[in-house]
């Protein structure tokens, strides 16, 4: 089964063609440059850019796959969570395409997409599917959810951030340190040159629960930077490394504990922050279970993950498939 999948929940205009929920036949992602100038996402600007780019991106995806629209079996699009104006562009374009081509429309939860990115591959030979049950950490600019995946599409929320998303904390600290947007890759690059134990910072978690919290940490970083500024030039690399360590330690600790408590068979990551190599390394160090992390370009938002989730949503269908967009839509 071939699915053409559209993703426009935030600032990437993305369309992919995925076969049987796993094999990527095309995966086109157009990042919106406009937000780099403002150092954050302006929802109205994101929606405008999606509308301008989407049809061209979809055409490119079909060209890359070497397919005509009539060779596709279903059309999928992200219907939430996300920016409502941005979601509406992708979902309505996809529904129009589906109605016109006489194909089923599959509305997909974006977070399920990040989880199912772990099923994707681009090579000739299929790697084995991740074994379930699994503990999954979905971390991005908008989400930080720790979930237990008991089976296909059966999710149980273990913990989440009680304030900012992890990616958002990266963005804010990057801005504070005069680094670029998005903050994740910028902090990671700066941290490579720094000493992660240079400055002690508070842990980004709540004790006795699986929840995370980043507001105390970012306030501490702000205070630290103000104090350092008073003394001279800020050692950006050391601050970045110390901050990254505090975030990574908190996440790795929660993931390792959840994996042990629920005796799962796999640990999986997803979302833009999962592209952080320090996070992968720390989780790998703390657990002996197989760790599945999509390659970086499948961690950040893309259409292929929506195509994968759409396939499993049709195969493990539970009730009505949503067609309406929602700004908030929990995974579990």
């Amino acid at each position: 089964m071939r699915i053409l999948a559209v993703e426009t929940s935030c600032d990437e205009t993305a369309v992919a063609v995925v076969e049987d929920g796993r094999r990527i036949r095309a995966n086109v992602v157009a990042s919106q440059a406009a937000h780099q100038r403002t150092g954050g996402i302006v929802p109205e600007v994101a929606a405008r850019e999606h509308l301008r780019a989407l049809d061209g991106v979809a055409q490119q995806a079909l060209r890359d796959a070497g397919m005509a629209l009539r060779e596709v079996d279903a059309i999928a699009a992200t219907v939430g969570p996300g920016l409502i104006g941005a979601l509406l562009v992708g979902a309505n374009y996809a529904r129009g395409l589906a109605l016109a081509a006489g194909l089923p429309f599959v509305g997909v939860n974006h977070l399920e997409g990040h989880v199912y990115a772990n099923w994707l591959y681009e090579t000739e030979d299929a790697p084995p599917e991740p074994e379930l049950p699994a503990v999954v950490l979905v971390v991005s600019g908008a989400h930080s959810d720790l979930v237990l995946m008991e089976g296909h599409r059966r999710f149980r929320l273990l913990g989440r951030t009680i304030d900012d998303a992890s990616g958002e904390a990266f963005d804010k600290v990057a801005r504070l340190l005069g680094l670029g947007f998005p903050g994740g890759p910028e902090i990671e690059r700066a941290a490579k040159e720094g000493d992660p134990s240079a400055f002690p910072l508070p842990k980004a978690w709540l004790p006795d629960r699986y929840d995370l919290s980043f507001s105390g940490l970012k306030t501490a970083v702000l205070r630290l930077v103000r104090t350092l500024e008073a003394k001279g030039p800020v050692p950006v690399a050391d601050v970045a490394a110390s901050f990254q360590k505090a975030v990574v330690d908190a996440m790795a600790e929660k993931v390792a504990r959840a994996a042990a408590e629920h005796s799962v068979r796999t640990v999986m990551l997803g979302g833009g922050v999962a592209a952080n190599s320090a996070l992968r390394a720390e989780i790998a160090r703390r657990t002996s279970l197989p760790l599945r992390v999509p390659p970086p370009r499948l961690c950040t938002d893309n259409g292929a993950m929506i195509g994968a989730a759409a396939f499993f949503s049709l195969r493990h269908r539970t009730g009505e498939i949503p067609a309406q967009v929602r700004s908030s839509m929990p995974l579990a």
Partner: peptide, 19 residues
């Protein structure tokens, strides 16, 4: 309404592409 306009335009683009 910006959002309202984009609902019909995105739908029209999809329908026009599909037909």
């Amino acid at each position: 309404s910006f959002t309202g306009l984009r609902v019909a335009i995105a739908s029209a683009q999809g329908i026009a592409r599909g037909t």
